[in-house]
Design a protein around this nucleic acid. Structure first.
Lengths: 235, 235
DNA sequence: TCGATTTCCCTAACATCGTTAGAGATGGCG
DNA sequence: CGCCATCTCTAACGATGTTAGGGAAATCGA
């Protein structure tokens, strides 16, 4: 039965399967969840609000999805699935890694809620996420890393992307907030002299910091690789 | 009035300020919150459960604390405050950075819930957190970094610690879970050949990966520093 | 010493949340 | 036509963060 407030009569209300289009599917739920998360943030993601977007009531979602956490996990993996995991083979593995991680970061920044989720949840390890890790790790393996060094390199690069994305989104504050933060810091400049002298912790140029940090990391990786296989060519 | 289930008579029940000890303070609330978070995780942190631990009811907490988020922020900062931010001046700045970040990581691993919080919340920037950042950044500044390079170096190292701590705690799963994960991955080994060949994504040796990744990063930082100030000594 | 005031914990209650139970409508298939 | 699976609904549960406001103890001014 229609809600009391629904002015549409029974015949004007959309019936089930009006066209061949599915009325409610996991895909449509996840799409709506991503949109809702983008617009209102993770705190305002509610099963009822999500259902509203789909012109449905909350319990209806549970026929397609077991739990709200599942929705979030699916939404995160959908973000990873946005950018095709291109397996470009550039002249140098370094370019490949940079390309992959930059695309990764771009996708994460487009959905600021996404970066913080994997840090908290257990196995957010969906197929799209795995595809990305496969690309990253295979690139490093082709470069010559193996065993514990491969594992360390993979996680170091992974942490750099996820960390900088979540740090950036978490600290992407308004000018007003930044002004207050700096002001408070300056009143304690005796305790935090370096921070106060260098403009608090808020960065103007997150992209620059990401790129520079990545360059540091890749420099170190390249050096280790060179010290092991002196002058050796790629696989 | 006492709860119906309280067998203690009015006179045996502890009265307010029985001794000079405060019955309920922000400090005691935060201590209880850290203990509760350690024992049961962040999902089970509830104002009511927290109040129970303090032999009090939930609304009483709101006299000392504005919101639950405040409690979490205070708890996180308390973790940073556990380890004294030693300003050791070793022979090489590299040792100082390693010492600081290792102590940082140890504190985060002792409280597995802590690493994931700053990624999500806006300004988890408490005094103890700032003290740590001051130590880190001042060490880097003393080493010779300045301007955007200093900022990039600070954030890169910060992200490495926070990222590896949260990755480790998030992926610290049981042997059973790991077995299932690897099993599922092997059934799709055509899609993720590298991951399947290198033992999934679960690392046995997180400490080793942290140390190696940090070494990569420091190698890169040192190289950049050397290329700018060739042969120059520290400040 | 006493009344006023502040401090602080209480009970009661609200709106909202994730989730379950189960009724009922729709469509396909025999 | 009647059975059955599919899918959405209403109703409701317990738990959550938080507010309103009562009331007792401690403190303070005179």
């Amino acid at each position: 039965m229609a809600k009391a407030g629904d002015v549409r009569s029974v015949w004007l209300r959309p019936r089930r399967a009006t066209r061949g289009e599915p009325p409610l599917t996991v895909t449509r739920i996840v799409e709506a969840a991503v949109a809702l998360l983008d617009e209102e943030g993770i705190d305002r993601l509610t099963m009822r609000r999500l259902a509203d977007r789909l012109a449905v009531v909350a319990p209806s979602l549970y026929w397609h999805v077991d739990t709200k956490d599942d929705v979030i996990d699916l939404a995160v993996d959908a973000v990873f699935g946005e950018v095709p995991a291109g397996t470009g083979h550039a002249a140098h593995w370094r370019e490949d890694v940079t390309t992959v991680l930059t695309a990764w970061r771009t996708a994460l920044l487009r959905h600021p809620w996404a970066a913080a989720v994997p840090a908290r949840r257990r196995p957010t390890i969906g197929p799209n996420f795995l595809a990305w890790m496969e690309v990253l790790q295979s690139t490093l393996a082709r470069a010559g890393f193996a065993g514990p060094a491969l594992s360390a390199a993979t996680w170091a690069l992974y942490n750099h992307v996820m960390g900088s994305a979540s740090t950036e989104t978490a600290l992407h504050i308004t000018d007003e907030e930044r002004r207050i933060g700096q002001e408070q810091l300056l009143t304690h400049r005796d305790r935090y002299p370096t921070l106060a002298a260098n403009g608090y912790l808020y960065d103007d140029d997150w992209t620059g910091s990401f790129t520079a940090g990545l360059a540091y990391l890749l420099d170190g990786l390249e050096a280790r690789l060179g010290s092991v296989f002196k002058g050796a060519s790629d696989q």
